[in-house]
């Protein structure tokens, strides 16, 4: 259980990090709570680890207009502990507090989780539901991408070689917004078997229902969201949720439908 040898560098700023990441076999270390086990099992064998811990730009937290902008190296624990302004009526905090275990949350980061793109991870689903926008830096400059569509499959993203996720911009929820987030795990802290996430915000005429931990990228259930009222409880049947879900086997379908059902119930109970 010892990793295969690799080189290590700890750049002090963004240009340094981008330069290092441009090298052959380079891999970003953004907390390393998923990469660490893979290194130990020798499943991952990078030539060079680029530790982003010293890049201060990646820890910046700002409120910009109607959005909260979190640096990619923001840890789950700092969100859990309320060190990040609450602009989502408690949703970010609730999601963060239930990621893996405390000893993992203190080191693991939001940007690391998104770039790693494990389908069963929390942020890929929660931030799709919140309609986050990602800032991506590469040699030539920066660009933005919507979270919905950023993940292209299990452990696959639109990031591309040598590019780096630097910040996550999360639209603030209004006072009238509702949200629900429900995940099903065999044991607390384990990889999720199914996740349901719901965000409704009448101030922006925004409705989104997301089914996560599906194997690939989280699935936005548009037809289902369109049916949701803002001010009264919906009368959705389980069959309607099933009809909106992608194809999966009966056990998976049951888990995912229940997760969405419970997320909806939470949203409307709020």
């Amino acid at each position: 259980m010892k990793p295969a040898p690799f080189d290590y560098t700890r750049p002090a700023d963004l240009p340094g990090a981008l330069k290092a990441l441009g090298g052959d076999g380079a891999r970003a270390l953004a907390g390393g709570q998923s990469l660490g086990p893979m290194l130990n099992l020798r499943l991952a064998r990078p030539g060079l680890l680029v530790d982003l811990r010293r890049v201060d730009e990646l820890r910046r937290i700002e409120q910009r207009g109607d959005a909260l902008v979190l640096g990619a190296m923001t840890t789950h624990a700092s969100i859990e502990d309320g060190q990040v302004p609450d602009t989502t009526r408690g949703m970010l905090r609730r999601v963060a507090a239930d990621i893996a275990y405390r000893a993992v949350r203190t080191r693991g980061t939001m940007g690391g989780s998104l770039a790693h793109a494990d389908p069963a991870a929390d942020w890929v689903t929660a931030l799709t539901a919140l309609d986050a926008t990602l800032t991506i830096a590469r040699g030539g400059g920066t660009s933005t991408a919507l979270m919905a569509g950023f993940m292209t499959g299990a452990f696959a993203t639109a990031l591309g070689d040598g590019a780096m996720l630097t910040a996550i911009s999360i639209p603030s929820l209004s006072d009238r917004a509702r949200w629900g987030y429900y995940k099903i795990c065999r044991k607390p802290g384990e990889f999720a078997d199914a996740i349901g996430a719901v965000v409704l915000d009448p101030a922006r005429d925004y409705r989104r229902v997301v089914m996560g931990a599906v194997g690939g990228a989280p699935v936005v259930l548009e037809s289902l969201a369109a049916k949701l009222p803002f001010d009264s409880t919906p009368t959705l049947t389980r069959a309607e949720i099933e009809a909106a879900a992608p194809a999966m086997d009966s056990v998976d379908r049951q888990l995912h439908v229940v997760a969405v059902e419970r997320a909806l119930a939470q949203a409307y109970a709020r």
Binding site: G36, R102, V104, T106
Partner: peptide
């Protein structure tokens, strides 16, 4: 803050 020492590198704790 608590952390798992098996999946954190010594060099990353500089």
């Amino acid at each position: 803050q608590i952390a798992r020492s098996c999946i954190n590198l010594a060099v990353a704790c500089d």
